[in-house]
């Protein structure tokens, strides 16, 4: 069992530098190869990592949401509708998407989070389906089953990011902001509260932590991040429909989170980095994506209970023992 908030050992700083360097190296791959395909995958990794990061925030208080795609969809539709109908700049549409998704999460979070464990998972699963069915039922807003095409591209201060090469730095910046927020949550006093709620809800409550409010705060923040990622996705891909945000997407986020490490700070990034490109590179295997994800999930649960992000620690413990 590892000790949370362990004190830095002499080894941890160089290891941190090593991982930071590795991350930078991975991030510059598209510029090295210059391949449009690689740029596209890298952007998709950024979007998935942001969404999974939001899911992680909710997971840190011990709740697993299967409605994460619905909140991404809420953000996407909010931004798209504001931009196309009210001529809002896309740069403002993204935070507006986050705001609406967060506000909805805040309102429904209070009654929803009374349910715990598998019951919360089930109710959020139902909510995701409800979102999809409602959106299909209001074609005036959602475009119905044919969706909304020709969504305005991402643009910053009137400058449209029309090529993959232009979108990628902006995607990296957004990802850095989201990861920065995650670091602040995790390393500050809020992370201490989240950890207490996740580890032992009854004891956290008995220690004076308002557990219901803390869980709702996490759910609100996490769902707002989902809304932001969904809005980004909509303006990047240029097409959304209610089916885009079905529960399969929620499941994908959960698998990325668990694969990366449910409770690890860098888990969402590692999970998205590993799983987003995988189906793309296995050419012709895109239709088997869910099978591949399923197999990986089982393998991770069996062999890496702390996810890929916990792998170095697990290996070094093995090394110590031998």
């Amino acid at each position: 069992m590892s000790v949370a908030k362990s004190y830095p050992t002499s080894r941890s700083l160089p290891m941190g530098l090593f991982w930071a360097a590795a991350l930078v190296l991975v991030a510059v791959i598209p510029w090295i190869t210059g391949s449009t395909f690689h740029f596209h995958i890298a952007i998709m990794v950024c979007i998935s990592a942001m969404a999974t990061g939001g899911l992680a925030v909710t997971a840190w208080v011990g709740q697993l949401s299967l409605a994460h795609a619905a909140f991404a969809g809420l953000g996407a539709y909010t931004s798209v509708l504001l931009v196309t109908r009210f001529d809002l700049p896309v740069l403002l549409g993204l935070p507006a998407g986050a705001l609406v998704a967060g506000a909805v999460a805040f309102v429904i979070g209070a009654p929803l989070l009374r349910l715990r464990g598998v019951y919360f998972v089930l109710i959020t699963f139902a909510l995701n389906e409800l979102f999809r069915l409602i959106m299909l039922d209001v074609p005036a807003l959602s475009g119905g089953s044919s969706g909304i095409a020709g969504i305005p591209k991402l643009s910053i201060f009137g400058m449209t990011l029309s090529s993959y090469e232009e979108v990628y730095p902006f995607a990296l910046l957004c990802l850095a902001l989201v990861m920065g927020l995650l670091v602040l949550i995790r390393k500050g006093q809020l992370g201490r509260r989240f950890g207490a709620v996740e580890e032992n809800l009854a004891l956290a409550e008995a220690s004076g932590i308002p557990t219901a409010r803390t869980q709702n705060l996490a759910f609100t923040l996490g769902s707002a991040i989902a809304g932001f990622s969904g809005a980004f996705l909509a303006h990047y891909v240029g097409f959304i429909s209610p089916e885009t945000f079905g529960f399969q997407l929620s499941v994908s986020y959960v698998i990325m989170l668990v694969t990366g490490g449910r409770l690890a700070l860098w888990g969402p990034l590692v999970g998205a980095l590993f799983l987003t490109p995988l189906p793309e590179f296995l050419r012709g295997a895109v239709e088997y994506q869910h099978i591949i994800y399923g197999v990986i999930l089982i393998a991770v649960l069996r062999f890496l209970p702390q996810g890929l992000a916990g792998l170095p620690a697990q290996l070094s413990r093995k090394g110590d023992r031998s």
Binding site: G195, E199, N200, L203
Partner: peptide, 21 residues
């Protein structure tokens, strides 16, 4: 609590700190 109830993954110091805060 009746049973031994702690924050199992956190250090002893961190456990008590969560109460002290």
């Amino acid at each position: 609590f009746q049973a031994a109830t702690t924050f199992p993954k956190a250090s002893v110091r961190e456990n008590i700190l969560r109460g002290a805060l």
